[in-house]
Write a protein that binds this DNA or RNA. Structure first.
Length: 440
DNA sequence: TCTGGGGTCCTAGGACCC
DNA sequence: TCTGGGGTCCTAGGACCC
């Protein structure tokens, strides 16, 4: 029964319809109803309940195109509450970690667990962890197991579909699917029942190209040789194929590396035409990137700023970015804001309806590599660092934006560019005022 | 009226160098 | 008439992920 695992083995634990499931924990009345969570600006659907999927709502569907289902089908839409989801994620991850010795948190709702050498019945063990997460946190999960990360991802997809669409796969694969325990024949049948586009790393574009070439299922793909894929596509797809064939090419990464670039970009609540409000927005975005930069203890050498019109509108289009080099690597809000504003002035053209803007910091390095300060007229580096950490402390304690750079605009003045969020739920676990109260 | 945000990696092509 | 080859670096753009 419990035959010892030979070779590497990975599990992927993934929350079902994660953002929707988080909302349902605090509003059980949303159970069994079509629910979507909307992106920033209430732009499009970024999470869908099974019932919403059954209505044919696609991932990323624009809200204004599906809004009619509110009345027609009882669809409920909520603005994203990322602080809540982050907190629920932490709770789920700490329980998922119990599945094996090491964990890689891959995204807000997914983590890989290294099961190599773990003894016992892995399917039974996975069901236990799954049940515990459901009971203690309230989030339903599925677990996929395979000898590579790509196979574990695929197994997870199968576990989800076996549960959601009865008949798509054998019912025993629902919730937990272990590809590594299948016979070659079972494996072949399972792969033949799975579309090639479901594979991790094969998106819409490559999926279409493969289908046009007669490759429809995972089984079709697996039978190809890697040289063909490398010639026709790239080394990335070749690696995916080798992973599907059971050769691990992607290792578990349990110590996430520092980010190589950090961005803050937003679509506006409505079109912006003037330079002044753009300056406010860019000041705010640049301040946020500087903050994130300090949080991961990095310094940036370049600042990229961009502005663009909406590609969805018939208006005149304009899209430009500019990379501004910094005199030396820094995480100083004032310097990064200054560089971003210089960039903005250079690329701004009047006469356009701007829909989106953003700031990125690039070419990052660790702040432990101390830069020797040679300029005599600017020798207050240590004071600046203390000023920045004071700024971060104040904003952390009293709330985002309590203290900021003057060009960000006063909080009281109406900011024409700020985003829409009309359907936001309370911060049940992240804001004291919103903690649910139990009544007898 | 209304179409997200934040990342990573790879490739192709041009500039430049010897 | 004939007009190299190879390496590196940079950038823009594409594709993917959640």
């Amino acid at each position: 029964m419990s035959k010892p695992a030979s070779g590497p083995l990975y599990a992927l634990v993934d929350g079902n319809n994660f953002y929707v499931s988080c909302e349902r924990v605090f509003r059980p009345s949303l159970n069994n109803r079509p629910v979507v969570v909307l992106s920033n600006n209430d732009g499009c659907a970024i999470a869908r309940s099974n019932e919403a999927k059954a209505l044919g709502i696609a991932m990323g569907a624009p809200w204004f195109k599906i809004k009619h289902m509110e009345d027609e089908a009882g669809l409920v839409a909520l603005s994203a509450n990322f602080a809540l989801y982050g907190d629920m994620s932490d709770r789920m991850m700490s329980l998922a970690a119990g599945l094996g010795p090491t964990q890689e948190i891959y995204s807000i709702d997914e983590s890989f667990i290294d099961l190599t050498g773990v003894r016992g019945d892995l399917v039974e063990r996975s069901h236990k962890i799954r049940d515990r997460i459901l009971q203690w946190v309230g989030i339903p999960c599925c677990v996929g197991i395979g000898s590579t990360k790509t196979l574990a991802k695929l197994a997870n997809h199968i576990a989800k579909n076996a549960e959601r669409k009865p008949g798509s796969y054998p019912a025993r694969l629902a919730q937990v699917c272990n590809l590594a325990a299948m016979t070659p024949q079972e494996l072949k049948e399972t792969f033949a029942a799975t579309e090639v586009g479901e594979v991790w790393g094969i998106g819409r574009r490559i999926s279409k190209q493969l289908q046009d070439g007669g490759i429809h299922t995972v089984q079709d793909l697996i039978e190809l040789d890697s040289a063909t894929l490398r010639r026709g596509w790239s080394v990335v797809l070749e690696r995916t194929l080798r992973e599907l064939q059971g050769t691990p090419c992607i290792d578990l990464d349990h110590t996430p590396a520092a980010k190589k670039e950090i961005a803050c970009t937003r679509s506006f609540g409505r079109a912006v035409t003037e330079l002044e409000p753009l300056k406010e927005a860019i000041t705010e975005f640049a301040s946020r990137t500087a903050e994130k930069l300090r949080k991961q203890h990095s310094l940036a050498s370049q600042v990229l700023v961009f502005i663009r019109t909406s590609p969805f509108r018939p208006d005149a289009q304009y899209s430009r970015s500019l990379t501004v080099p910094l005199r030396r690597p820094t995480a100083d809000t004032a310097l990064i804001v200054h560089a971003a504003l210089m960039g903005l002035e250079a690329i701004f053209r009047s006469g356009f309806k701007y829909a989106k803007a953003g700031v990125m910091v690039l070419d990052l390095q660790s702040d432990t590599v101390v830069q020797q300060e040679l300029d005599l007229e600017d020798d207050n580096g240590a004071d600046k660092t203390r000023l920045m950490s004071a700024l971060d402390t104040i904003n952390q304690r009293y709330g985002k934006g309590t203290m900021k750079i003057a060009s960000a605009g006063l909080a009281g003045s109406r900011r024409v560019w700020s985003m829409k969020q009309e359907r936001r739920t309370p911060g049940y676990t992240t804001c004291v005022d919103d903690i649910p109260v139990a009544r007898a």
